[in-house]
Amino acid sequence: MIFSVITAFIVGGLICVVGQLLFDVAKLTPAHTLSLLVVIGSVLDGFGLYEPFIDFAGAGATIPITSFGNSLTHGAMQEAEKHGFIGVLTGMFEVTSSGISAAIIFGVVAALIFRSKGKVS
Protein backbone atom coordinates (compact mmCIF):
# COMPACT_ATOMS: atom_id res chain seq x y z
CA MET A 1 0.00 0.00 0.00
CA ILE A 2 2.82 2.41 0.86
CA PHE A 3 4.32 1.47 -2.46
CA SER A 4 1.12 2.45 -4.27
CA VAL A 5 1.21 5.88 -2.64
CA ILE A 6 4.81 6.32 -3.78
CA THR A 7 3.95 5.25 -7.33
CA ALA A 8 1.01 7.65 -7.32
CA PHE A 9 3.36 10.42 -6.16
CA ILE A 10 5.96 9.74 -8.83
CA VAL A 11 3.63 9.15 -11.75
CA GLY A 12 1.28 12.01 -10.84
CA GLY A 13 4.27 14.27 -10.33
CA LEU A 14 5.75 13.34 -13.69
CA ILE A 15 2.50 14.11 -15.51
CA CYS A 16 2.55 17.52 -13.83
CA VAL A 17 6.15 18.04 -15.00
CA VAL A 18 4.94 17.43 -18.55
CA GLY A 19 2.30 20.11 -17.93
CA GLN A 20 4.92 22.48 -16.53
CA LEU A 21 7.12 22.01 -19.59
CA LEU A 22 4.12 22.83 -21.79
CA PHE A 23 3.64 26.01 -19.70
CA ASP A 24 7.23 27.16 -19.56
CA VAL A 25 8.95 25.81 -22.65
CA ALA A 26 6.11 25.60 -25.18
CA LYS A 27 4.60 28.79 -23.62
CA LEU A 28 1.06 27.42 -23.74
CA THR A 29 -1.72 28.92 -21.63
CA PRO A 30 -3.23 26.74 -18.89
CA ALA A 31 -6.32 26.17 -21.05
CA HIS A 32 -4.22 24.97 -24.01
CA THR A 33 -2.11 22.74 -21.79
CA LEU A 34 -5.04 21.06 -20.07
CA SER A 35 -6.89 20.55 -23.37
CA LEU A 36 -3.81 18.90 -24.84
CA LEU A 37 -3.41 16.60 -21.83
CA VAL A 38 -7.06 15.55 -22.01
CA VAL A 39 -6.65 14.67 -25.68
CA ILE A 40 -3.50 12.67 -24.85
CA GLY A 41 -5.43 10.71 -22.21
CA SER A 42 -8.18 9.99 -24.67
CA VAL A 43 -5.78 8.79 -27.38
CA LEU A 44 -3.90 6.57 -24.93
CA ASP A 45 -7.14 4.87 -24.03
CA GLY A 46 -7.80 4.35 -27.72
CA PHE A 47 -4.66 2.21 -27.77
CA GLY A 48 -5.80 0.45 -24.60
CA LEU A 49 -2.88 1.82 -22.63
CA TYR A 50 -4.60 3.97 -20.03
CA GLU A 51 -6.33 1.23 -18.04
CA PRO A 52 -3.10 -0.72 -17.36
CA PHE A 53 -1.57 2.64 -16.50
CA ILE A 54 -4.28 3.14 -13.85
CA ASP A 55 -3.60 -0.40 -12.56
CA PHE A 56 0.00 0.60 -12.18
CA ALA A 57 -0.21 4.12 -10.78
CA GLY A 58 -3.64 4.29 -9.13
CA ALA A 59 -4.43 7.88 -8.21
CA GLY A 60 -1.27 8.95 -10.03
CA ALA A 61 -3.22 8.20 -13.20
CA THR A 62 -6.80 8.96 -12.14
CA ILE A 63 -6.23 12.35 -10.47
CA PRO A 64 -4.46 14.18 -13.35
CA ILE A 65 -6.76 15.66 -15.95
CA THR A 66 -5.61 13.07 -18.53
CA SER A 67 -8.00 10.61 -16.88
CA PHE A 68 -10.93 12.75 -18.10
CA GLY A 69 -10.03 11.90 -21.65
CA ASN A 70 -9.64 8.29 -20.67
CA SER A 71 -13.01 7.94 -19.00
CA LEU A 72 -14.81 9.74 -21.83
CA THR A 73 -13.22 7.46 -24.40
CA HIS A 74 -13.70 4.41 -22.24
CA GLY A 75 -17.42 5.01 -21.90
CA ALA A 76 -17.77 5.59 -25.62
CA MET A 77 -15.82 2.42 -26.45
CA GLN A 78 -17.81 0.26 -24.07
CA GLU A 79 -21.06 1.39 -25.66
CA ALA A 80 -19.63 1.11 -29.16
CA GLU A 81 -18.67 -2.48 -28.41
CA LYS A 82 -22.25 -3.24 -27.43
CA HIS A 83 -24.24 -1.09 -29.85
CA GLY A 84 -21.90 -0.27 -32.75
CA PHE A 85 -21.74 3.23 -34.18
CA ILE A 86 -24.70 4.59 -32.18
CA GLY A 87 -22.80 3.73 -29.02
CA VAL A 88 -19.98 6.07 -30.02
CA LEU A 89 -22.34 8.98 -29.44
CA THR A 90 -24.35 7.69 -26.51
CA GLY A 91 -21.61 6.19 -24.41
CA MET A 92 -19.51 9.29 -24.00
CA PHE A 93 -20.70 10.27 -20.55
CA GLU A 94 -21.51 6.71 -19.46
CA VAL A 95 -18.40 6.19 -17.35
CA THR A 96 -17.71 9.88 -16.82
CA SER A 97 -17.28 11.65 -14.76
CA SER A 98 -17.71 12.55 -11.22
CA GLY A 99 -15.14 15.26 -11.85
CA ILE A 100 -17.47 17.29 -14.04
CA SER A 101 -20.57 16.85 -11.91
CA ALA A 102 -18.63 17.52 -8.71
CA ALA A 103 -17.11 20.65 -10.23
CA ILE A 104 -20.56 21.94 -11.25
CA ILE A 105 -22.17 21.15 -7.90
CA PHE A 106 -19.36 22.51 -5.77
CA GLY A 107 -19.03 25.49 -8.11
CA VAL A 108 -22.60 26.54 -7.40
CA VAL A 109 -22.18 25.78 -3.70
CA ALA A 110 -19.01 27.86 -3.60
CA ALA A 111 -20.77 30.74 -5.36
CA LEU A 112 -23.44 30.55 -2.65
CA ILE A 113 -21.09 30.60 0.31
CA PHE A 114 -17.87 32.32 -0.77
CA ARG A 115 -16.95 35.62 -2.34
CA SER A 116 -13.60 36.40 -3.83
CA LYS A 117 -11.35 37.90 -1.20
CA GLY A 118 -8.98 39.49 -3.58
CA LYS A 119 -5.49 39.92 -2.34
CA VAL A 120 -2.48 37.87 -1.42
CA SER A 121 -2.03 38.11 2.31
Binding site: F3, S4, T7, P52, D55, F56
Partner: peptide, 9 residues
Protein backbone atom coordinates in the same frame (compact mmCIF):
# COMPACT_ATOMS: atom_id res chain seq x y z
CA UNK B 1 4.18 -7.32 -7.41
CA UNK B 2 4.16 -3.48 -7.62
CA UNK B 3 6.32 -3.33 -10.74
CA UNK B 4 4.16 -5.89 -12.53
CA UNK B 5 1.02 -3.90 -11.87
CA UNK B 6 1.04 -2.53 -15.38
CA UNK B 7 0.17 -6.02 -16.67
CA UNK B 8 -2.11 -6.84 -13.75
CA UNK B 9 -5.06 -7.56 -15.99
Amino acid sequence: EPLSKFSKE
